[in-house]
Design a protein around this nucleic acid. Structure first.
Lengths: 200, 200
DNA sequence: GGACTTATGGAACACTCATTACAGATGTGG
DNA sequence: CCACATCTGTAATGAGTGTTCCATAAGTCC
């Protein structure tokens, strides 16, 4: 019998999904450095051995948590980019962001900002991962804008790279606003003002 | 003779200003949690006892570093708000921010974002301090906008609170952009696009 | 030149960090 | 029921954390 096929041996006795969800929420709130393995064992309800066996080192667990975050909580951005017209895309981008930032049950900010901005040398890989995710999100917006440019919805006078960075800036700024403690109503009005200035 | 008057006893043998500057730069780069006292002793060139005698606990040192940051590096914002007309104020706000973020010799981001966004429970006071500073900066912008409203430069149709949050958002977004690795030229174009959409 | 006050460097403190060793528990295949 | 493989909890690992103790150095005041 081949070993490591997942059929023999004592089976995993906990819900891997639920454990990863708990880890994600804790990393989201406290960042990479601010979350200790002891905190994680408590939040996940597991002993260190189980965590290491199932997810690997702390950084590997963090990577998985970030992936889970991108694939679930941060899907609102992807959904917005799938709207049929450019106007709907941009409106959805702002509306969904505000809704996301004010959803109860998780910190009022983006995980890619709270996760690891400034950090010690040991946590540099986590910080770089956060930067990479932010850049990927930006690239997704750029792709959608390029599409709109081809379809004629976005004027060819507008530099797509600049417009992408401009939109990203405002959206990131909303996240900082939310972290500052802005209310849902305030964020909504701020985002409406942004839309108005954008011409929507 | 009264004790503690700073006249008797062995005098301090190092430059307090230079030491605090070194601490500020390290906190700026690595954040509160990412900077250890051991890192600080090395960067400041001092032994732990000297640091504790001169600046107090780690958090007190951090507070002093943040104050130094606000009073020196972050003065560009205050200066912008002192411009005579609203248009000049807003232009300076964006121009100075871009210049600040791309100045060599310090991290390409705002200390209030890198210092402590998400963090552990022990560092919560540091995080709250950063939030407070961000809100104070916002309040300064609001005051200047209120002034412009009174002088008639800012239309009374515009909600000052909303406009303040909107401007703050874009400026914070520029900081995130810089942390993402945007070049000076890119930041300049992004900020120019923001100014254009603002009507300047 | 003592008496006094404060600063300094280095070692030590108690504690937490991420990670692992080990012994026992729990399943599957024969 | 018996090997076998894997998981699980406890306790330990060594390194790193912020902070303090202590002997000594370096000044001022009488």
């Amino acid at each position: 019998m081949k070993t490591g096929d997942g059929k023999t041996g004592r089976p995993v006795s906990f819900d891997k999904d639920a454990a990863l969800e708990a880890a994600m929420l804790l990393f989201w709130e406290r960042g990479y450095e601010g979350t200790s393995m002891a905190d994680l064992t408590q939040a996940m309800g597991l002993s260190p051995s189980s965590i290491y066996a199932a997810f690997g080192y702390k950084h590997a667990l963090f990577s998985l948590a970030v992936k889970r975050y991108s694939d679930s909580r941060a899907q609102y951005a992807t959904e917005a980019l799938e709207e049929p017209t450019l106007e709907k895309v941009i409106r959805a981008l702002f509306d969904n962001t505000v809704a996301f930032l004010t959803t109860p049950g998780h910190p009022p900010s983006c995980m890619t900002l709270a996760g690891a901005m400034g950090c010690g040398v040991d946590a540099a890989p986590a910080r770089d991962l956060m930067t990479e995710v932010r850049r990927q999100n930006e690239a997704a917006i750029r792709d959608r804008l390029l599409e709109a440019r081809k379809s004629g919805e976005l004027s060819k006078d507008i530099n797509v790279d600049d417009y992408t960075r401009y939109l990203s800036s405002i959206l990131a700024g909303l996240s900082v606003q939310a972290a500052n403690g802005s209310t849902k109503a305030e964020l909504k009005r701020t985002s409406q003002m942004a839309l108005r200035h954008l011409g929507y």
